[in-house]
């Protein structure tokens, strides 16, 4: 984790000057600010229902209770599983297709392949509202509206630009000589992909996996509109419904927010280095 964002430069001297002290104070204040929502979510989730009140929002709980988390889990667990059944296949399929695309677009370029790639990339940036109405009509016409398979398809397709981009940039840095040597040995395009490139591309798969997992887990609009059954909707949609209904205690909402945040947060903590790499790679030029 310490190395997640690289390390500070070594050549600087270690003494704190006035400027640095001011900088440090500033960073400390910002640190508190950045942790405020975490405090509110975690602390209030730990309160019992009878001591949760808005006027005591900032106080530590007088007695600890996991009741908020228990209730949140009761309400949200079907949606957690929905999200899992959505995220895992969508991540794997879009990752694999992205690897294949990236390999062809970097090592088997053809006339117009760069333009094609750019046109594919455009799909990564569009506001999804601009395809939503036809998308729903289309899913309805092929019988995939309202069910998980439909939502998986949606996330696979709109994940393709990103996964293709990451793999294309990754494979572009793999020496072309490797492909040449294999072709000289008589290996075909697919053979090279499976036997040479795929084994090399584990780091790219980790980056793509993390990012697709995070993006799809966190996504809201498709989950809200493609899945109609509330028990099957992804966790983000369920959290929003929970926070909008006044019959639910506030500690439960905060606990629910923590539950929703936890998987992506864990990924960030455990695989921070790759997370940062994905941020860089995702900014198109890599």
């Amino acid at each position: 984790m310490a190395t997640a964002l690289g390390s500070p430069r070594k050549s600087e001297n270690k003494k704190l000057g006035v400027g640095k002290t001011i900088g440090l104070i500033f960073l400390g204040i910002m640190l508190v600010f950045y942790l405020i929502p975490v405090y509110v979510m975690v602390v209030n989730g730990l309160k019992t229902a009878d001591v949760v009140s808005f006027s005591r929002m900032w106080q530590l709980p007088s007695k600890l209770s996991l009741g908020g988390y228990g209730q949140a889990w009761d309400k949200l667990s079907p949606n957690v599983w929905s999200s899992v059944t959505l995220v895992v296949p969508a991540t794997i399929i879009s990752g694999f297709l992205g690897a294949l695309n990236g390999y062809i677009l970097s090592k088997w370029k053809f006339r117009g392949s760069d333009l094609l790639f750019t046109l594919m990339l455009f799909g990564m940036f569009i506001p999804y509202q601009s395809i939503l109405i036809p998308l729903i009509k289309f899913l309805q016409s092929i019988g995939l509206y309202g069910n998980m398979a439909g939502l998986i398809l949606v996330h696979v397709v709109y994940g393709l630009p990103f996964t293709t981009l990451i793999f294309r940039n990754y494979f572009a840095n793999v020496p072309t000589e490797l492909v040449e040597a294999a072709t000289v040995d008589g290996a075909g395009l697919l053979q090279i992909f499976f036997q040479v490139m795929l084994p090399l591309s584990i780091p790219a798969f980790v980056v793509v996996g993390i990012f697709q997992f995070t993006n799809i887990w966190n996504e809201f609009l498709f989950g809200l509109t493609v899945i109609t059954n509330p028990a099957r909707q992804p966790i983000t949609v369920a959290l929003n419904n929970l926070s909008g209904s006044f019959s639910v205690e506030w500690n439960v909402v905060m606990a629910g927010a923590v539950l929703t945040a936890l998987p992506t947060l864990l990924i960030y903590i455990v695989l921070g280095k790759y997370f940062v790499r994905g941020i860089m790679a995702g900014s198109v030029k890599g």
Binding site: I136, T228, P230, N241
Partner: peptide, 24 residues
């Protein structure tokens, strides 16, 4: 029981409307 929560029924109406439009 296919009940949809939130927004005094307006979320539910939106969900229902898309289901109906899809012949489901």
């Amino acid at each position: 029981n296919a009940a949809v929560a939130g927004g005094a029924g307006s979320n539910a109406q939106a969900a229902l409307q898309t289901r109906l439009a899809g012949g489901d």
